[in-house]
């Protein structure tokens, strides 16, 4: 992790870190990077890709429509709503 790559991540995650926090994050990742580098040394050429950590499969459901909640219930804890919409700060593309 460098100052540059952290800056890129800050933008992606919409974070705003203080200089002090930034240094903490960089120091933390410096340690992590070393540990991952050690993993890179393991030969995985003949190992099948692990699709999931748990040896269980998904449960699927039939395509049946059900209405379980009303809009009012769902928006009860919304900070702001308007005409049945969730209301958020304006976004400009």
């Amino acid at each position: 992790m460098t100052k540059d790559s952290l800056q890129k991540l800050e933008k992606l995650y919409q974070l705003c870190l203080t200089e002090e926090e930034k240094e903490g994050v960089i120091a933390f990742f410096a340690k992590q990077d070393d540990e991952f580098a050690a993993l890179e040394n393991i030969d995985t050429a003949n190992v099948e890709r692990m699709v999931h950590v748990m040896p269980i499969l998904t449960v699927v459901r039939e395509d049946v429509e059900k209405k379980l909640f009303t809009r009012e219930e769902l928006q009860r804890n919304a900070p702001e709503t308007m005409d049945g919409y969730w209301q958020v700060p304006r976004l400009v593309e």
Binding site: R61, D63, E65, F69, L74, D83, W86
Partner: peptide
């Protein structure tokens, strides 16, 4: 399809705003 990919809400086009939603598809 009749329903959404990960929950049972209607997948139909149209409807009043936020009428086809549940805690799963609105990210609770």
């Amino acid at each position: 399809t009749e329903s959404k990919i990960f929950c049972s809400c209607s997948a139909k086009f149209g409807g009043e705003q936020n009428d086809h939603v549940c805690p799963a598809c609105c990210g609770m």
